[in-house]
């Protein structure tokens, strides 16, 4: 019975995550447009974009650059698969990092000055958010005595009650992970004339579509992390994930771009104070 459930969950993730991710992206663009006083594109616009990209010709600088994008997508999907069947949280984090590394390598491989800068910035972003993600996993382990996602979900109390600092710290680095302003440095999504499109500059047509789809998967996985903090009440947890996404859209639209120095410093300070502080208090209490 349990295995049947897991297969169903896996299937739901493989099919549902890109649909949900694309829909969320569409809602994001609509809300952003409304916040700027514009009418905005249709909610399904991200799907139209990806559909169009698949009809276009593939232009490459080097043929091998597309391989890295395929690996990026594959490892993001693997990450999500481990997460949604209730696997090991540490494995999830490492697989996600590996996927990120493939994305960076793709940027380096396509040898354009813009993708180089984008790749370097992406590495800095990883430097900024990685410690907090690890601390989140450690915090969940200290409370639930397990790294397994299934066990964390089965824990009777909401993790937010014991890990409020970790949750806030995670919210902070989520902006970096979503690649949203003020920390949208590597893809330069809003200030697109600055380093053109960062890592994605040299990718066109179907490969760009794969990058888009990988980001949809990634966003769903990250919202899954938010879900874990409220997992004992599924409805509240889904609501919290939706609220966090909305908050990210507001932050995206209200803050100007920050420099990478500020990103690394501030995220490490947040990690140290909120993340480590939370862990210390937790270890004293018990």
């Amino acid at each position: 019975m349990v295995t049947v459930n897991r297969v169903l969950l896996l299937f739901a993730f493989l099919v549902g995550a890109p649909l949900l991710g694309g829909l969320l992206m569409g809602i994001d663009r609509k809300i952003s447009a409304r916040l700027q006083g514009r009418f905005g594109p249709p909610i399904l616009q991200p799907f139209y974009d990806v559909g169009k990209l698949f009809l276009k010709q593939t232009l490459v600088v080097r043929r091998s650059q597309n391989m890295f994008i395929v690996f990026f997508l594959v490892f993001v999907i693997v990450t999500g698969a481990i997460f949604f069947v209730g696997g090991d949280l540490l494995l999830v984090i490492f697989a996600l990092t590996l996927a990120g590394i493939f994305f960076v390598l793709a940027g380096y491989k396509s040898s354009s000055p813009y993708s180089f800068i984008g790749a370097q910035r992406e590495l800095l972003q990883m430097l900024a958010y990685e410690p907090m993600i690890i601390l989140a996993a450690i915090g969940m382990y200290m409370v639930t005595k397990s790294f397994s996602v299934a066990a964390i979900i089965a824990h009777p109390t909401a993790l937010i009650t014991t890990l409020p600092g970790i949750f806030l710290g995670f919210l902070y680095i989520l902006t970096i992970k979503f690649r949203k302003s003020p920390f949208d440095l590597s893809l330069s999504h809003h200030a697109h004339q600055e380093i053109v499109r960062g890592i994605a500059t040299e990718f066109s047509g179907p490969t760009l579509a794969l990058i888009e789809i990988a980001h949809w998967y990634e966003n769903v996985i990250l919202l899954g992390f938010i879900y874990l903090f409220f997992a004992n009440d599924p409805i509240l947890a889904a609501l919290a994930a939706a609220l966090v996404y909305f908050l990210e859209i507001i932050i995206d639209n209200t803050f100007a771009r920050a420099k990478w120095q500020l990103m690394v410093k501030s995220s490490w300070i947040v990690t140290l104070v909120l993340g480590m502080g939370n862990l210390l208090i937790l270890s004293f209490v018990r």
Binding site: A33, G37, F39, Q45, D49, K52, Q193, S204
Partner: peptide
């Protein structure tokens, strides 16, 4: 700009020839 807002037709200004139609 908000007055004409071509993004409602899905039109984006990419600034990158490799992404443009």
């Amino acid at each position: 700009t908000p007055l004409y807002d071509v993004e409602r037709f899905g039109i984006l200004n990419t600034g990158n020839p490799k992404h443009a139609d």
